[in-house]
Amino acid sequence: MNAARPYGPFRVETAAFADACSELLAVREAVFVVEQNVPVEEERDAHDPRCLHAIARDRAGKPIGTGRLVPPTAADAPAHVGRMAVLRDWRGAGVGDALLHALLRQARERGWNDIVLNAQVSAQSFYARHGFVPVGERFIEAGIEHQAMRRRIDRPQAIEGTDAAVAATAAIVRHARRRLHVYSRELDPGLLDAPRVLDAMRELCTRGDGIQVQVLLQDAAAPQRALAPLLALAQRLPSVIAFREIADPVDRAYPSAYLANDDGGYYFRALGHRLDGEAETGAPGLARQLAEHFRPVWERSRPCTEYRTLGL
């Protein structure tokens, strides 16, 4: 059993299945078998003995959450995060985040850089916050709708399709500390107005702590005509969200689009009219490069004063 990491009212440690079998299975049975009605024969499998397990305990040492990491089956195969379970009374306290961090840390230390998981659809946004993007169609497993998700922890994650783009954008927004830069052609309909992205933006902008969101547009009139929801949010929070329209002809020729936060996260699209691109949540150097590109363009662009009087 590895050293525990404290997280206030609980701690997380990694363990071999043989050392913590009864505790791991007790949490999983309470969540999956009792609460979600998953048959016990489907909940348990032959992978457990060869997995790396994470276990969360309260101050008294009682197990309150679990997760496991299935090793790759070949050199080019992914590792698999699974059996993530937190007791009902501890949900919303950060236990799941700490368990996932512990598993990803173990994967990184072993060079297992390609990570996949099958998320229950109700938990999809949780994994998206941690840089996982959806892959393929949803499916039913143990009577519950699931979504396959994937994350690279050694290089950018390829973003293909709307679902992956929305997940990446919401993650970049949520992980911003105080600064978020958005470089867009016309506020990206279908992306920046997606409910999950708007929820993330609303959460960020109402957090306080001097948050600043700066949005550069090549065409300011298009989102105004479309009554883009982000404009309504900006009108309620004018000191937090600011818009400018690119004026310099050289800047207007820039073909790409991106988001970059001050926590090392970015989502870059080489062709700004397409959603295909790449994203990372732990790449401070690349995020900084995008911010450095953004700042001078922002300074020579014109404020969108017309947005302040929109009748939304």
Rank of each mutant, 00 (worst) to 15 (best):
N2Q: 13
F10V: 10
V12N: 04
V12L: 06
T14L: 15
A16D: 13
F17I: 00
S22T: 14
E23C: 00
V31P: 02
V33Y: 05
V33Q: 02
V34H: 07
P39C: 00
P39D: 06
H47T: 13
R59P: 08
A60G: 07
G61S: 12
K62N: 14
P71S: 06
P72D: 11
T73H: 10
A75F: 02
P78C: 01
G82W: 08
M84H: 02
L87F: 03
W90N: 13
R91V: 09
G92I: 15
V95K: 01
G96I: 06
D97L: 11
A98M: 13
L100D: 03
L103W: 02
L104Y: 00
R105H: 15
E109A: 15
W112I: 01
N113I: 10
D114M: 13
D114I: 07
A123S: 12
Q124H: 10
S125Q: 14
Y127H: 08
R129S: 09
P134I: 09
E137S: 10
R138S: 15
A142D: 14
A142E: 14
G143T: 01
D154N: 08
R155K: 06
G161C: 03
A164V: 02
A171T: 00
I172H: 10
I172K: 06
V173D: 03
R174Y: 00
R174V: 02
L180A: 06
S184F: 00
R185S: 08
E186I: 00
L191P: 01
V197Y: 06
M201L: 15
M201T: 10
R207D: 08
G208M: 03
D209I: 14
V215F: 06
V215L: 04
L216W: 05
Q218V: 05
P223K: 05
R225P: 00
A226D: 14
A228S: 11
A228E: 01
L230Q: 08
L231W: 06
L233Y: 02
L233V: 02
I241A: 03
F243Y: 10
R244C: 07
V250Y: 09
R252M: 12
N261R: 08
G264H: 12
G265W: 05
Y267G: 03
R269A: 07
H273R: 07
H273L: 12
D276R: 07
G277C: 08
E278W: 04
A279W: 05
G282E: 14
P284Y: 12
G285S: 07
A287P: 13
A291H: 08
R302M: 13
C304L: 09
